Simulated assay, not measured.
Amino acid sequence: MGILDKFKSNKAARDKARQASDAAEKKANERTGGKYEQQIDTGQQQAERRLGMDRDRPDQP
């Protein structure tokens, strides 16, 4: 079992990572004045998808 598999199976870690991702998105939008909001959002979604944290999917076990 790889480290990403352990991460995907740990709901508390996913929740904490999601909160960190949201905070980073908010901070980046504040620093850029919202100028790159769409690009930041796209990057956040791609990063979360690669980590198995898709927001549109129900929580996994």
Rank of each mutant, 00 (worst) to 15 (best):
R57E: 12
T42M: 12
A17D: 00
S21H: 03
P61V: 01
L51I: 04
R55L: 10
Q45Y: 06
R55N: 06
E37S: 15
A13W: 10
D56I: 01
R57T: 07
K35G: 01
E37R: 14
G34C: 04
P61H: 07
M53H: 00
G33W: 03
R49T: 14
P61C: 05
R55Q: 11
R50N: 12
A13S: 10
D54H: 00
E25I: 05
G2I: 07
N10L: 07
G33N: 04
R31C: 03
D59A: 08
Q46K: 15
N29H: 01
L51G: 02
D15V: 10
A28Y: 02
Q60T: 12
K11E: 13
D56G: 12
Q60V: 10
S9L: 13
L4I: 14
T42R: 15
R18L: 08
E25Q: 09
L4Q: 11
N10S: 13
T42V: 12
P58S: 06
K6W: 07
G52R: 09
D22R: 08
T32M: 03
R57H: 03
G2K: 08
M1P: 13
K26E: 14
Q60A: 13
G34D: 02
A20P: 00
M1Q: 12
P58F: 01
G2A: 12
R14N: 02
A23W: 06
Q60M: 09
N29R: 11
F7W: 05
L4D: 10
S21I: 07
Q46W: 08
G43K: 04
Q19A: 15
D59V: 02
R49C: 00
P58C: 01
D41N: 09
Q19D: 15
E48P: 00
K6L: 15
K8G: 05
R31V: 11
T42I: 12
L51H: 07
A13T: 02
A17E: 08
E37W: 01
